[in-house]
Every structure is written in C-alpha cells, then in structure tokens.
C-alpha cells in the first residue's frame, strides 16, 4: 500500500496529465455526435448572454447594410403574399377562397448571437429558444437560402449546426432536372459545399441552381442552396459538384427557423411503414 502511494506520488505529474487528458478527450468525443451538442446546455445561457451583448454592439456597426437587406427581403415577402395576387378564374360569389389552404410551415425570426466559419465543426447560436417554439431538428434558413439545423435548445437560446459543419448532410436536388443528391461541406472553403450522387448522364451547366429536395421532412422543398461553380466525374458513375452557397455565413445576422406542422404526421407514417 505504501509502495503504491509512493508510486503515485513520484509519478503524480504524468498521472495527472493522463487524468486531465482523458476528461477533456471524453468531452470532445461525447460532443462529436451532433445530437449531443446540448451537453453544454448549462453554460449556454451564461455564454449566450455575454455573446448577445457583444454581438449587439457589433451589429450596430453594420446596421446600415443589414437594414438594406431586411428591406429587400420584406419587399420580396410582400410580393409573394396572397393579397398581391389577383384571382384569374372567376369564382362564384360566396366561395371562401382561402379555406382550401392550410398553413404547413411557420417561420420564427431570430437574431444570430454567435457564429464561426473557420473551424471544421462550426456552430451558430440564436436568441430564440423553446419558449418561442423552437425545437431540435427544425430547419434554419437565412434570407438568401439554407443555413442549418437546430440541435440544442434551452429556454431562450438555441444552437444550430450550420451547413459549414462536416457532420451535416442535406438532401438536395437540381432545380431544372430534379435529380437529387446529398450535399455536405468538406471543411475547406466556407463558400463552397460538395454535392454528390448525381448520375453522370445528367447534363450540368455552371450556374445551375441547387435547391432542397424536401425528402427529409426537415426542409421544405425548393429552398435555395446555391449555384454550381464546378463539376467533375468521380469514380466513373457520379458527379462531384462544387456548389457556391447562397448564404454568406460571414454576414449572417438574422435567421428564420422553420416549423413544419406536418412533420410529426409524416414521421409517424414512415415509422409505421417500416422505413426507420
């Protein structure tokens, strides 16, 4: 027993090193799986508060640019409102036109309070949480296109895995031909993501639009992802396509979280059909 104690005492530096290294590497690996991103739930509220203070100061500096973009977006939204359209077919009087429509998607606007683009596993925090109706696995878009997926939610803040995270894959398709593939970021350039699984017989052009496929029940169909900048055939049968992301993650101040009201129904149906 005394010998053991002496052994521990003489090697305490090395043993302590092993202990600390084990603890911190455990933290890393536990967090590697992005569904466990909420391990930092407790500190998120504290660091979220500090980050939001710093960010509100930084936002002040590019208020002008942000306002201009918000204005542009509001204009686009107004243009797509039902009231901006005229009914081309005459309906008999007394017919309720909008009762045929039911709301599928709800948008929750949020402010980005911390953001990074220079790591392999980037994270974004926003200032809306479960109190505002945000839940894990909801889609997040910017005013220009797809941004990411919600992973961790606390009362007033949530963390998002953005497209700029090597763990995230998004089901996407070519807008003009409808062929679908899987899009992910390769960890190099924060403006470029890679689209795979498009068969080689499809004719591609630079500048073709890539949108979400809507197969995943997270993203609605047809949300802008980006434009093709470069493509090559890889492994004989499939293209490897470089897509220029339409969302500029370096200038990402406002986000919209999308709540799909039919998602639960769809998941239950797919679960019942045996497609786990």
């Amino acid at each position: 027993m005394r010998n053991l104690l002496r052994l521990i005492l003489t090697n305490h530096f090395f043993l302590l090193f092993i202990l600390f290294e084990t603890v911190s590497l455990l933290l890393v690996f536990q967090n590697n799986n992005y569904h466990k991103a909420h391990a930092f739930n407790l500190s998120r509220n504290v660091s979220g508060y500090i980050n939001s203070t710093i960010f509100s100061f930084r936002q002040y500096l590019d208020l002008h640019e942000t306002n201009r973009r918000l204005l542009e977006e509001n204009q686009a939204l107004r243009n797509s409102l039902m009231s901006s359209y005229k009914l081309s077919i005459p309906l008999p009087s007394g017919v309720e036109f909008d009762s045929a429509w039911t709301q599928q998607y709800n948008f929750i606007a949020a402010r980005v309070i911390s953001n990074s683009v220079n790591k392999q596993n980037n994270f974004i925090s926003i200032d809306k949480g479960s109190v505002h109706g945000v839940e894990p696995d909801m889609a997040v878009i910017s005013d220009k296109g797809v941004a990411g997926i919600v992973t961790g939610v606390s009362d007033h803040y949530s963390t998002i895995i953005p497209l700029l995270n090597i763990d995230l894959r998004i089901s996407s398709k070519l807008k003009n031909s409808g062929h679908f593939g899987s899009l992910h970021w390769d960890g190099k350039d924060p403006e470029i993501a890679i689209l795979r699984d498009i068969p080689h017989h499809v004719t591609l052009h630079e500048g073709d639009t890539v949108v979400t496929s809507g197969y995943s029940s997270i993203f609605p169909e047809g949300i802008m992802i980006g434009n093709i900048v470069d493509f090559e055939i890889e492994g004989g049968n499939f293209y490897k396509i470089s897509v220029n992301l339409s969302t500029d993650f370096r200038k990402f101040n406002y986000a919209y979280v999308i709540d799909n009201f039919f998602r639960k129904e769809l998941l239950e149906l797919e679960g019942a059909g045996g497609y786990d």
Partner: peptide, 19 residues
C-alpha cells in the same frame, strides 16, 4: 471551449502543452 462551443478540444490541447 465554453465560449467557442468546442467542449474539451482546447482543454486537451492546452493540457498537452502544459505537460
């Protein structure tokens, strides 16, 4: 780590360097 959302990553590297 707490501020950059990377639990354990910087801690492990800094412990290694201190060692």
């Amino acid at each position: 780590d707490i501020f950059s959302n990377t639990p354990g990553l910087h801690a492990s590297a800094t412990v290694f360097m201190s060692f």
